[in-house]
Structures are given as structure tokens and as C-alpha cells.
Write a protein that binds this DNA or RNA. Structure first.
Lengths: 147, 147
DNA sequence: CTCAATTAGTCAAGTAGCTTGACTACATGG
DNA sequence: CCATGTAGTCAAGCTACTTGACTAATTGAG
């Protein structure tokens, strides 16, 4: 039993590794060679709305300092802006720029490319079943940007 | 279509993240708090037989220097030994020690623990179908130790 | 109202795991 | 025999994280 479990765990990790690689390639081809997976995960939280650096930190499962550095990069590269909060001078709400939104669309297209390749191997129905199964075992917690 | 693809990609990554976390926890509980995922992947190649540092490097998708450092850690911590090759004085074949084999057994048990939790959510049959689907989409190439 | 405690965020220094470049020792084929 | 290739290590540098210290703004108890 244990050996099959290892096999399943390895399949999950190898598949995740492949997904990351394919999306990274797709992003580079679409003109976004400088965004890492962690940036993408930050985008998810930021586009969800009303996000601060601390929210991004919690979402990524890293310290606020690490999130602060990451956001700083995104600001410098023109993906994100810091919006001062009139009700609390400490807070600086984050928002995507037009370039940031273009980047998320490119990420969606890259993910779709990756999944399209899977249809050749397990069919559209297989992809559908895989999606359902994974949705039920995948957690809600923070998405750590590294192993 | 793209949005569902993103959902699937996120599920894969979140699941992989969870697997890593659960196995890491399981290893720490079993008395192996100092082995990282990359070490585990190295164990896979080493236990497969006749592995050199270069083989480990290729298996992990890293440089030979990185693999050399990683193997050095495993040797220092008593998981691996370097066996000189009588036919080629340059080569030093790697082999697991008794502790190294105990570590792989602990990893298998930890993986089994993680999978056991999934059965509560998608059932034994779900796990079986998930295993089959993932085996067909997961690649054979090197298993990079980071995102 | 005041001030101690909390919160948002940054600055600075240290660490871990990778990289590239240079090198030694051994092996191989003309 | 020697030029070329291979296994492996040493050393230095980079990057993304960490911990610790700090400023500035807000909150709440008395």
C-alpha cells in the first residue's frame, strides 16, 4: 500500500512541476519572462480585492518582509500600484495595473495551453474528472511558493 | 475555458504543496526532521542503483555542483555512503546506509498517511482513479526540487 | 484625553540553496 | 604519449527567503 502511495505522491509532484514549467514557458513566450510563480499567486490575492502586503504574505505563507520585497518588484515592473487608504494612513491597498491585468490573462492562456496538452493523453472527459477529483483533495490554505 | 484551466492548474499546485507539507510533517514526526524534498528525490535515484553525483544531478535537474553539495549533506548526516569504483578511480558510486533505508521507509509511510486522508474525501475508488489519471499526465523527466 | 499596546510597513543583516567559473585527478583514443 | 573528455570538488556570487529592529499610525483602557 505504501509503495502505491509514494507513486501517487510522486505523480502529483511531477505533474505540478510540469505545470509550473509549462506556464513559465508560456509566460515567457507571451512577453512576461520576469514573473515567477510566486508573483502569479500574489496576483490571485491582489485581484481578489482589498489586499495589503500582509494579506499577500498570509496568502503565500511567507513573512511580511518577503511579501513586501515581492510587491516592491511588482510595483517597479509596472504590474501593481499602491493605493493609499484615506481611512488609515498606514495601509496601502494593492491594485493591478493594466499591465498586471494583461499578465493575468496571459497566465490564464498559458494554463489553458498546458491543460490542452493533457487532453491528448486522457481526453476532455479525463481532464474533467481529474479537475473534479483534485478540487476535492486540494486544500484552501496558503500556497507556498517553494518546496 | 481558460478560467477552468487556471482552476485545474491551481488545484494541482495546491495539492502538491499539501503533499509536500504532509510528508515533511510525517518525516519530522518519525525522527527525520533534516531531510528536504530534494533529498527524498535523490534517494529515489540512489536506491535505484549505480548512481553517481552526476546521475543525481540529472535526476534532480540541477548542476553537478548542487548535487555534490546535497550528497555531501546526506553523507555527513549518515544517510549515504560513497563507494569507490575499482574500475574507475574517478567514480564514486552512491549507496544508502541502513539509516538511509529507514528514511525511505519513513517517507513511504508518510506518503501513505497523506493519501489516507484523501480517502475520506474522494474514497478509495477516487484515489484509484486519481492515481490512474495523474500517472498518464505526469512526465518522466527530472523532478526539479523547487518552483 | 492620554498613553501603552497593537498594527502596517520598511530597512538591514544573515542564511540556504542554487548558479557559474576554475580547477584537479583520472580515463580514453588516436 | 599526449590531447581530449569525464567525475568530482572548491570558491565566489546571486536570489529569495529569514529574523530582528525600527518608524509611523491607530486603537482602546482608564
Amino acid at each position: 500500500m505504501d509503495v502505491e502511495a509514494v507513486q501517487l505522491a510522486m505523480s502529483v509532484l511531477a505533474t505540478a512541476s510540469r505545470v509550473i514549467e509549462q506556464i513559465q514557458d508560456g509566460m515567457a513566450r507571451r512577453g512576461f519572462p520576469d514573473v515567477r510563480p510566486a508573483h502569479g499567486f500574489a496576483f490571485v490575492r491582489i485581484s481578489h480585492g482589498d489586499a495589503t502586503v500582509l494579506d499577500v504574505a498570509e496568502h503565500l505563507g511567507v513573512t511580511k518582509q518577503a511579501a513586501s520585497q515581492l510587491v516592491e518588484q511588482l510595483v517597479q515592473r509596472g504590474y501593481v500600484t499602491r493605493v493609499p487608504d484615506p481611512a488609515d494612513a498606514r495601509r496601502r491597498t494593492l491594485a493591478l495595473t493594466a499591465r498586471g491585468r494583461a499578465c493575468t490573462r496571459a497566465a490564464e492562456a498559458s494554463a489553458a495551453d498546458a491543460v490542452r496538452g493533457w487532453q491528448d493523453e486522457i481526453g476532455a472527459d479525463g481532464v474533467r474528472r481529474l479537475t473534479r477529483l483534485l478540487a476535492r483533495v486540494s486544500p484552501d490554505g496558503p500556497l507556498r511558493p517553494a518546496w
